[in-house]
Structures are given as C-alpha cells and as structure tokens.
Measured scan of single mutants.
Amino acid sequence: AIERGSKVKILRKESYWYGDVGTVASIDKSGIIYPVIVRFNKVNYNGFSGSAGGLNTNNFAEHELEVV
C-alpha cells in the first residue's frame, strides 16, 4: 500500500516526472481524484515572481504510482 514516506515511481506518461521516483508527502483521504502528494528532489520548471525554484511536489492518483 502507498503511505506517507513511501518511495514511488511515477507512471503518468504526460507528467514531467514520468519514470522518476519521489517520496509520498501526504495522502488526502477526502475522496479527491488525485489524493497522493509526491515530493521530488528536483523542480519541474524555473520559478516565477521571484521564487527560487519551481514546484517539487505534485498530486497523483494511486494508480499512477508504483511503490519501489
């Protein structure tokens, strides 16, 4: 089962992080479509409006993740 702290591989082909491994930061139990927040070591794009980097978290559905 996917739980907080799990290392997961991203299976969503259109994702910037496809094939990468991230760490589960949290799981939303409220029934939303993409409840699993995954944190990565790298950012997906340069930040804007003065922020240092881009996003390094993204929401995924459990079926888009594979525990490694």
Rank of each mutant, 00 (worst) to 15 (best):
A1K: 13
S15Q: 01
G50H: 09
V67Y: 04
W17V: 01
D20E: 13
V67W: 06
F40P: 00
K13S: 06
F48W: 07
N56A: 08
Y34P: 05
T57P: 04
H63L: 05
E62L: 14
G22Q: 02
Y18C: 05
A61V: 03
F48K: 06
V24Q: 01
I27K: 02
D28Q: 06
G47K: 05
D28M: 10
F48R: 03
I27R: 02
N44C: 15
R12S: 03
V36L: 04
I37E: 09
Y34E: 05
T23R: 04
E62F: 15
I27D: 00
W17P: 00
G53Q: 12
F40K: 00
S26L: 08
A1W: 11
R12G: 00
L55M: 12
G53C: 15
S26V: 06
S15H: 03
Y34W: 08
G22C: 07
S15R: 01
Y45S: 15
Y45W: 08
L65K: 01
K42H: 07
W17Q: 01
E62D: 06
G5I: 03
V67P: 07
E64F: 04
G5W: 05
G19L: 13
G31Y: 10
I27E: 02
Y16T: 04
S51L: 10
S6C: 14
W17L: 02
F48N: 13
S15L: 02
N58D: 15
V43P: 15
H63A: 07
E66R: 07
S6L: 09
F40D: 00
V8P: 01
V24T: 00
K29Q: 09
V43L: 08
N41I: 10
I37A: 08
G47Q: 08
N59A: 14
N58Q: 15
G53H: 10
I32G: 12
T23Q: 05
V8E: 00
D20I: 13
K13Q: 10
G31K: 09
S6G: 04
A25I: 15
V36I: 14
G50K: 04
G50S: 10
N41A: 11
A61C: 08
A1L: 11
S30H: 06
K7I: 11
L65Q: 02
E62C: 14
K13M: 08
V38S: 00
E3G: 11
I2S: 02
T57M: 13
S26E: 12
N56M: 09
N58S: 15
L11W: 05
R12D: 03
K42E: 07
Y45M: 15
I2Y: 04
F60V: 01
Y16R: 04
K42I: 07
D20L: 14
E3S: 14
R12I: 04
E14D: 10
L11Y: 03
D28L: 11
G5K: 02
G53W: 05
I27H: 03
S51C: 15
V36N: 00
E14W: 11
V68G: 01
N44I: 13
L65V: 05
G22E: 02
S51A: 11
V68N: 02
N56C: 15
I27G: 00
T57I: 08
F48P: 14
N41Y: 09
E62V: 13
S6R: 06
D20W: 11
S26T: 07
Y16A: 05
K9M: 08
F60H: 02
G54E: 09
I32Q: 12
I37Y: 09
G53Y: 06
V67M: 07
A61Q: 06
R4H: 07
A1D: 07
G31M: 10
V24S: 00
I27A: 01
S49F: 11
K9P: 02
G50F: 07
S26K: 10
D28I: 08
I32M: 12
I37G: 04
K42Y: 07
E62I: 14
H63W: 13
L55V: 14
E66C: 09
R4V: 14
S30C: 09
I10M: 01
V36S: 00
Y34I: 03
R39S: 08
V68I: 11
Y16N: 04
P35Q: 13
Y34H: 11
A1V: 12
N58M: 15
V36A: 00
F60L: 02
S49R: 04
S6H: 06
Y16L: 06
L65G: 00
K42G: 09
V24A: 01
N56K: 06
S30E: 07
S15Y: 04
A1Q: 12
G53D: 13
R39A: 08
Y34S: 06
S49M: 13
T57Y: 14
A52W: 10
G19I: 07
T23Y: 08
K9H: 03
Y18I: 03
A61M: 06
N41V: 11
N58I: 09
V43F: 14
S15C: 11
A52I: 11
K42V: 07
F40S: 00
A25R: 05
G47C: 15
N58G: 15
I32E: 09
